[in-house]
Amino acid sequence: MSLLDYFRLSKPKTASLAKERLQILVAHERSHRNQPSYLPQLQRELLEVIRKYVNVDQNAISVNFEQDENQETLELNIVLPDYQQANKGLNN
C-alpha cells in the first residue's frame, strides 16, 4: 500500500459498494432465470380459479419456485381478504 493510499482510506470505497449491489442483484435474477416457463401462466390460472370462490386481489397471490440440489419446491401463497369484505365483494 502506498503512502497516498493510506490517506485515501477515509474515502468510501465505491467498488465494494458495487460488488455488494451486484451480488444481491445477480442472486435475485438467477433465481428467476431458473424458474420453469409455465410459472406466469400457472399463476394467472390459479388466480382465476380462486377468484371464483374468493374475491382476492391480483397481488394477493404469489407463486414461488425454488430449486436446490435435492429438491424443487413450488410455493403457493394466497392472502385471503377479511371474511366480511370478501362476501361483500362477491355479492356486488
Binding site: 493510499d5 485515501r8 465505491t14 467498488a15 458495487a18 451486484l22
Partner: peptide, 10 residues
Amino acid sequence: RSGEMLSLDD
C-alpha cells in the same frame, strides 16, 4: 487499487 473499480476477483 484505489478501490474505485471492481477488481478481477470481484
